[in-house]
């Protein structure tokens, strides 16, 4: 299909819901959703706590093709409960990835694309959410040896909590400028450390430390780009074509520790200082 006639041109990926995001990334007409909302697999824990559930529990999982290659595509819906992962949402992701591992071991070729929009564990389902995230992480570590696992963080929620670790385990980690990536969310840090140390309302400061451009410059993600649908789609294709990488970011333990030792905790870190420390020996 030619780009000039493509109505998706100039469509902002960030504004799309989880289901649409998958549809845009996959080859046209190839999407087949697994465990659809009509299966009514909702969280059994939210209603008893007086919280309105959502029919897909905030996670969309689909089979499809990208550039002709068979993939499993997963997107988290950041607008439902902050994209948090509970029992059902987590099981959908872990189950899909585990099935992909089994299919690859049986001779099929299925890669994975994950679109994160999440604050991490859903606190109302605490332990079950934590367990699910652990299962997701081990499935990614198993799958990444066989197939490329591409992660994408576009915002507006970003990727925080245990799911930021999950993102770091993927073969390739891609962000848009609007995306944010961090272990603790800005409001959590402010609450713990005080507004003097970390002002969660200071947007230039927050994006300066956790935004896509900063994370790319400090070598913590593989690429960053604009949020046009076509651009996002092209980048996902590009990284899927790279196949399984020789080394994984999460294996570079010593060089990461060495760099962390150079962080001066007496003074508030700035965007520039972080770039200086993390740019040194950024190659893994």
């Amino acid at each position: 299909m030619s780009n000039a006639q493509d109505s998706r041109l100039n469509t902002n990926f960030v504004e799309q819901g989880a289901r649409k995001r998958i549809e845009y990334v996959l080859d046209s007409g190839s999407m087949r959703e697994l465990v659809t909302p009509f299966d009514r697999v909702i969280s059994p824990w939210l209603e008893v706590q007086g919280i309105v559930p959502q029919f897909d529990d905030g996670v969309v999982v689909a089979r499809g093709a990208i550039d002709g290659k068979s993939v499993i595509a997963i997107a988290i819906d950041g607008s439902f409960q902050g994209g948090s992962l509970g029992e059902v949402a987590g099981a959908k992701i872990a189950g899909a990835l585990e099935l992909a591992v089994e299919a690859n071991q049986a001779g099929e070729s299925i890669a994975a694309v994950l679109m994160f929009e999440t604050g991490g564990v859903r606190l109302q389902e605490a332990n079950l959410g934590l367990a699910a995230i652990a299962e997701i992480q081990s499935a990614i570590v198993a799958l990444r040896k066989l197939q490329p696992v591409v992660a994408l963080i576009t915002g507006p929620v970003g990727c925080f909590g245990g799911m930021s670790i999950t993102a770091g385990l993927c073969s390739y980690l891609l962000m848009t400028r609007e995306g944010r990536l961090g272990l603790n969310g800005p409001q959590v840090i402010e609450q713990e450390a005080g507004v003097g140390e970390y002002d969660s309302r200071d947007r230039p400061f927050i994006w300066g430390l956790t935004g896509g451009e900063q994370r790319y410059t400090t070598g913590l993600v593989d690429d960053f780009f604009g949020s046009d649908v076509i651009e996002v789609r092209n980048k996902v294709q590009e990284y899927l074509r790279k196949g399984v990488p020789d080394t994984f970011r999460s294996e570079a333990i010593q060089s990461s520790l060495d760099r962390l030792k150079n962080v001066d905790t007496q003074h508030q870190i700035t965007s520039e200082a972080a770039r200086e420390i993390f740019a040194k020996g950024a190659s893994l």
Binding site: P37, F38, F55, S79, F80
Partner: peptide, 18 residues
């Protein structure tokens, strides 16, 4: 047709028809 519109986000709702 089976239909789903909207989402369970602040100020919104999801409506499913089956």
């Amino acid at each position: 047709n089976q239909t789903l519109v909207g989402y369970v986000g602040s100020g919104d709702l999801e409506v499913m028809i089956d």
